[in-house]
């Protein structure tokens, strides 16, 4: 089994911290879940335990950045983006500090922990904040490239990571440039638009679909968004479908709808989590019941195609 996203994240951050003493890891007492503990194991001096106090952790990161450090603040996505939202806005984004915010355990797959731990609105929240860059890589290799780019580029950024342990490095090209999307498949019947972990599952779906010409775009950066890539691909198809492990409101589907409604009005179908709170469940149960498993996505696409063509 190849390395998964969160293990790769810990490993890469430890590498960055070893190479650059400005890089610090700030933990909200979840290091053994998020894999921030890799930094503590490999370069203990770069690891700062901030305890279970997200608001202060984000503020401390701002202060560290003001004296020249590059803090990487890591917690579960839902706690980081909601408990410390005002701190992110006022102390990190408005000041434009070089603080990297890492939301681990994003989406549904939070190890059976349920409603309090799901993070289904973090894209909506973080893409609304001025100065904030929002990045959601799909596989372990792309996570490494994204982190390298984040390290090199000053400014507040949010890295949305999945706990999904089933995603190998599958992308044909792990290059990463902030603000650029990737074309994974070209086609003329339907355009599938994805980000983060969902890109892997949709890639699996496409392999199983026959008799339909599918284009597939992956957007590892959600803000700034690669509008041109989207518009060019959308021009060639009658139907655009977004798939995301996030509420269908405010996430990738909303971004795509906003752009196309202004630039190239076109039918957009959004697949994602509906407007409701969810219970706990296994990864498979949660993906299945929210229409986001490979099987369910294929079923939805097949139905859409039969209606469309």
């Amino acid at each position: 089994m190849s390395i998964n996203v969160r293990d790769q994240f810990g490993k890469q951050l430890a590498k960055l911290a070893k190479e650059d003493s400005r890089v610090l890891a700030l933990d909200g007492d979840l290091g053994n879940s998020t894999r921030l503990d890799s930094i503590e194991k490999e370069t203990v001096d770069s690891f700062l335990q901030m305890g279970i106090a997200e608001q202060n952790m984000v503020g401390v990161a701002a202060g560290l950045a003001s004296v020249g450090f590059q803090p990487w603040v890591c917690s579960f996505a839902t706690f980081l983006t909601k408990r410390a939202l005002d701190q992110i806005v006022v102390s990190v984004a408005q000041t434009n500090f070089d603080v990297k915010l890492v939301g681990s355990y994003s989406g549904l797959l939070t190890s059976n922990t349920g409603k309090t731990h799901h993070s289904l609105d973090d894209i909506a929240i973080m893409t609304t904040i001025p100065n904030m860059t929002v990045i959601a890589p799909s596989d372990p290799s792309e996570t490494v490239s994204a982190m390298k780019a984040m390290h090199k580029t000053a400014g507040p950024m949010y890295l949305r990571l999945t706990r999904d342990e089933t995603i190998p490095s599958f992308l044909p090209n792990s290059d990463f440039e902030i603000g650029k999307g990737k074309t994974l498949a070209e086609g003329t019947d339907i355009l599938l638009v994805t980000t983060g972990s969902t890109t892997f599952r949709v890639n699996e779906v496409i392999k199983q679909m026959e008799g339909v010409s599918i284009a597939h775009l992956h957007f590892p950066t959600l803000k700034p968004f690669d509008k041109e890539l989207l518009i060019d691909a959308a021009r060639k198809v009658p139907l655009v479908v977004t798939v995301e492990e996030h509420y269908i409101r405010g996430g990738l589907g909303s971004i795509v709808s906003e752009i196309l409604s202004e630039e190239l009005p076109k039918k957009v179908v959004r697949i994602g989590v509906p407007d409701r709170f969810l219970g706990c469940g296994t990864d498979e149960e949660l993906l299945e019941s929210n229409g986001l498993s490979v099987y369910e996505i294929r079923k939805s696409l097949t139905a859409l195609c039969s209606k469309q063509f």
Binding site: Q55, N56, G63, V67, D86, V90, S91, Q94
Partner: peptide
């Protein structure tokens, strides 16, 4: 040295500066 205005936030930033120093 810091943007403030939403109460409670400046002290955390000051703590970060002091750790940094």
């Amino acid at each position: 040295d810091m943007s403030t205005g939403s109460l409670g936030q400046g002290l955390s930033a000051a703590v970060g500066m002091a750790i940094g120093a």
